[in-house]
């Protein structure tokens, strides 16, 4: 008798699931975007809350060299959003963001995307 009741209650409470590993949902500048002005920061939104330590990005410039960025921090209101301040303006060209995300359950995911600065 107990089991069906628990299933029904659980199904109501918990319907819809989250993904336990952090997947990139959106980014600013967005993947494939062509933007006219150099961004002042990168913002990456994930499906899961992240650990600030051990999550971060490497930004590669048009020549393939790594560009120094500020330290990646989590959004104060939403731990799923990673913000990376940029120190200087980006010149025209194609940039690749390599990201690494550690979710709270200890799983790490990584990936990359590119955007173009075209003033």
């Amino acid at each position: 008798m107990l089991k069906p009741a628990v299933i029904v209650i659980a199904a109501c409470l918990f319907s819809g699931s989250a993904l336990a590993h952090a997947h990139l949902k959106a980014a600013e500048p967005a993947e494939g975007a062509r933007i006219a002005a150099s961004p002042t920061a990168l913002s990456l939104s994930f499906s899961e809350a992240l650990e600030a330590k051990l999550s971060g990005v490497t930004l590669k410039g048009p020549d393939g060299k790594t560009i120094a960025t500020g330290t990646a921090v989590l959004d104060a209101k939403d731990q799923r959003v990673l913000r990376v301040p940029l120190d200087g303006a980006l010149r025209a060209g194609k940039y690749t963001v390599h990201w690494r995300a550690l979710s709270k359950d200890g799983h790490s995911t990584h990936g990359s995307y590119a955007f173009t600065v075209a003033p």
Binding site: K53, L54, K104, G106
Partner: peptide, 8 residues
């Protein structure tokens, strides 16, 4: 960092 800075 992993031991003292994360939930896991």
């Amino acid at each position: 960092e992993l031991a003292f800075g994360t939930v896991i």
